[in-house]
């Protein structure tokens, strides 16, 4: 464990908690893409199946349980409890255009052709594009609530910190996982446009609205 990975995990946790609290407290999921949240729940489910097979550390297990719990709670709030506030008309990204290619790629490019490893690879590839429905929804509505932009900032920051963690681990441990690194670079690049808007607008107290 290194400071970049720890900060990255805490940033990821912060994003997940911010979103869950925003929806729970405001009793509304307006502006939130339910499709992205379903994809994240799928990412955690397929990646953390090793909860059943191997114990790495209390921290590892605890965080995985929290991530899975919060992501399913968020999906539950969006599609069941607060369904009336879900803005389905703007959440129209065709997720099958993500899941099918990602599924195919996971079969073709992986570290080991075993069920658990292919599911892990699928989850790594899926996570890199899971935010697209949310970014697409914001481009359609033309704006985002400030709390939603903070959610996206911490979510984008987490994988950017992981990139530094991988540089650190390569340098100090000789460890590198090309699949995670390439997917992590793609994932972080997808946030660049948002990061620019976040820094130039939201941090200056303005509302995030598109076109920029």
């Amino acid at each position: 464990m290194n400071i970049f990975r720890l900060t990255g995990d805490l940033s990821h946790l912060a994003a997940i908690i911010i979103l869950l609290l925003k929806i729970w407290k405001s009793r509304s999921c307006a502006g939130i893409s339910g499709k992205s949240q379903v994809l994240f729940a799928l990412v955690f489910t397929t990646r953390y199946l090793d909860l059943l097979t191997s114990f790495i550390s209390l921290y590892n297990t605890t965080m995985k349980v929290i991530y899975i719990g919060c992501s399913y709670a968020t999906v539950y709030l969006i599609y069941m409890k607060l369904k009336a506030t879900y803005d389905g008309n703007h959440d129209t990204f065709r997720v099958e255009f993500l899941i099918v290619p990602v599924g195919g790629l996971a079969f073709l490019v992986n570290h080991d052709f075993s069920p658990l490893e292919i599911l892990w690879t699928f989850s790594i590839y899926l996570e890199s594009v899971a935010i697209l429905p949310q970014l697409f929804m914001i481009s359609k509505t033309g704006e985002a609530e400030t709390i939603t932009t903070h959610y996206l900032f911490f979510l984008g920051l987490y994988r950017a910190l992981y990139l530094i963690n991988w540089i650190w681990r390569f340098y100090f441990e000789g460890f590198f996982d090309m699949i995670a690194i390439v997917a992590g670079v793609v994932q972080t690049i997808l946030y660049c446009d948002f990061f620019y808007l976040y820094v130039t607008k939201v941090l200056k107290g303005k509302k995030l609205s598109l076109p920029a």
């Binding site: 995990d9 191997s54 790495i56 996982d177």
Partner: peptide
């Protein structure tokens, strides 16, 4: 292919 015994990252 690089065998990763288990993935220690979240």
């Amino acid at each position: 292919s690089q065998e990763l015994l288990h993935h220690d990252e979240l």
